[in-house]
């Protein structure tokens, strides 16, 4: 293993030269349907927006408000929760539980003043590669229209306050 010759930083790659803002979207997917749907999009080489990162869980029922709120807290511009279509859940009703968790999360998100458009719930089957790609494109565009999450640009302010406290 050779260490990199160039200095690797965690700064975003900006070689495109265009400093246009791009959203940071977190996608939660269930193993059996929506994650598989994303794979199907891959097998079919269905190009789509690249600004999302995915976390796989076994069932959408596992996706709890804490995960979504944490993502927003950390500065996510959008969060997509996805699972199997009704009737297709590998665990019978896990996705129906996911709806309850999602509704709860949405309640909180609205109260907190985060635009509801930054959070979305979608059902995507393992076969629906195209649907996956379309939803990603659509949601990315929707979040792009909303602009950066107010929480994502707060890091500097945090630092300022820390300075204030320390000083």
């Amino acid at each position: 293993m050779t260490k990199a010759k160039t200095t690797i930083t965690d700064q975003p790659v900006t070689a495109t030269g265009t400093e246009t803002w791009q959203p940071r979207i977190l996608v939660f997917a269930c193993n059996w349907c929506s994650y598989a749907g994303a794979d199907t999009a891959g097998v079919g080489r269905m190009e789509h927006e690249p600004h999302f990162r995915m976390i796989r869980v076994m069932c959408s029922g596992r996706i709890q408000p804490a995960f979504v709120l944490k993502a927003f807290e950390k500065g996510a511009d959008g969060v997509l929760v996805s699972g199997c279509h009704f009737g297709d859940c590998h665990y019978i009703f896990g996705n129906e539980r996911a709806v309850e968790q999602f509704d709860k999360t949405m309640n909180m998100v609205k109260l907190l003043g985060i635009e509801p458009g930054r959070l979305r719930l979608e059902w995507i089957s393992a076969a629906e590669g195209i649907r996956f790609a379309e939803i990603i494109n659509e949601f990315t565009e929707q979040v792009r229209q909303l602009g950066p999450s107010p929480l994502s640009s707060k890091r500097l302010d945090d630092l300022r306050i820390e300075e204030e406290i320390d000083g």
Binding site: D10, R24, F67, G75
Partner: peptide, 21 residues
Amino acid sequence: HFTDRQVHAMIDAFFETEAAR
């Protein structure tokens, strides 16, 4: 294998790696 801690660690890693642009 899908604990809160594991999921939270992934969320943190995402937003620590890619600071707001």
